[in-house]
């Protein structure tokens, strides 16, 4: 019974997060301006991280946590670099 409840909730949550990723990707493709694309990419990173956390709950293993942490670090660095690029035209001055 508890497996059924948690399993259904996990499927629903994963579907919702996947739809959120698709919508964020739509914003990346659609634009209209460069800052919108970067914002969409940042949202995509955070949503993908949450999706991986739900996968970790489903399998009950700790290994997904490390993948989520790497995504968090990479997402932050990538978005900061792109925001800096939009402002100055170069990343490292």
């Amino acid at each position: 019974m508890s497996v059924l409840i948690l399993g259904c909730a996990l499927i629903a949550a994963q579907v919702m997060l996947s739809v959120a990723i698709v919508l964020a990707a739509w914003r990346v493709v659609h634009g209209p301006r460069a800052q919108d694309r970067v914002l969409g990419l940042d949202t995509l990173y955070v949503t993908a991280l949450l999706l991986i956390v739900t996968f970790g709950i489903r399998t009950g293993s700790n290994f997904y946590f490390e993948a989520a942490l790497v995504i968090a670090l990479l997402g932050f660095t990538a978005t900061v670099a792109m925001a800096k690029f939009l402002m100055r035209g170069e990343v490292i001055e």
Partner: peptide, 20 residues
């Protein structure tokens, strides 16, 4: 756990709907 995950996922989805 189900309630926590479902509410978190729906809030995230609402946020991304706002983004689009």
């Amino acid at each position: 756990v189900s309630l926590l995950i479902l509410s978190g996922a729906s809030l995230t989805l609402i946020g991304v709907i706002g983004l689009t």
